[in-house]
Amino acid sequence: MAELPHPLAAFLVAEIRRARGAAGMTQEAFGRAAGFSASHVSAVESGTRGLTLDFIRGADRALNNGGLFERMVEQLGVPSWFLPWLDAERTATQLRCFQPCLVPGLLQTEDYARAVIRCDETLSDQDVEQRLASRIERQVILTRDRAPQFIAVIAEAVLRRAGDDFRDVMAGQIKHLITQAERTNISAHILPDEISMHVGLTGPFSLARSPDHRWVGEMENQLGGVVVDTDADVDTLLSRWETVRNEALPRRQSIELMKEVVNSWT
């Protein structure tokens, strides 16, 4: 399962350790009740092993607290449904993303990402900055050693969604997208507006291929999202990926279109 991002993980580990101590439980007793070895508990508490949703749920069981720590994860800005995708994304050898509405999160600039996150009026400034930091932190997977191959298909309308009050942000975003698309492990393909009807109109989705060659899919919606890994669901998303990818422009033509859009504003 996915490791939670720091500093959220550090906070939760400290709270779990404090609760374990208050309950008078040794690491061995706690681990037995949570479904983990004492050495695993020790590694999580010392920070040498990542905190996962499985461990959090185990802690809730061991402490019989009614799911307190899992609810804390939700309240602190990391929805539990998203954790399996974070794990798949972090370990992927290949990533595929189709976006008809936004620049993919892994390719967003800070200014663009902040503007997108601020669209949720229920979030405080602190919530926005916390989610922004987590999103930018995820992007390091594209520049690490043995980075995954990342291919994105983005609707042309995404590039042109720039009113007067947003044009500078969008120009910076497209320039960043061009720079990223010129990296050897990243491709960005634009789906032209002239392709008016296609299977991708039903919504955005992403795919991650693991080191053992299994695919995991992720789809977001207004109420959250869903991560799928069954053969039938993954096969459907892979088929739809091939369809939208085949309709998109080649890599070099896509970069030229992005440059054309930015130049048209100057």
Rank of each mutant, 00 (worst) to 15 (best):
P5L: 06
A10N: 15
I16Y: 06
R17A: 00
E28T: 07
G31D: 06
A33M: 04
G35R: 07
F36A: 08
S39H: 05
S39M: 04
V41A: 07
S42H: 15
R61P: 03
A62V: 05
L63R: 14
N65V: 00
G67V: 10
L68T: 12
R71L: 08
M72T: 09
Q75C: 12
P79V: 00
W81T: 03
L83W: 01
E89L: 09
E89F: 01
L95M: 03
L95I: 04
C101K: 13
A115K: 11
L123M: 10
D125G: 11
Q126C: 00
Q130M: 10
R131H: 13
L132M: 15
L132V: 09
A133G: 07
E137N: 10
E137P: 00
R144F: 03
F150E: 02
A155R: 14
E156C: 00
A162T: 00
G163R: 15
G163M: 12
G163D: 14
A171W: 00
Q173E: 05
L177Y: 08
D193R: 04
D193F: 00
V199P: 02
V199K: 06
L201N: 15
P204R: 13
P211R: 14
P211N: 15
W215K: 04
E220G: 15
E220I: 14
V227K: 02
T236F: 10
W241H: 11
E242I: 03
E247W: 13
E247T: 13
A248C: 05
L249K: 01
R251N: 14
R252V: 09
Q253V: 13
I255Q: 09
E260T: 08
V262N: 06
S264M: 06
W265S: 13
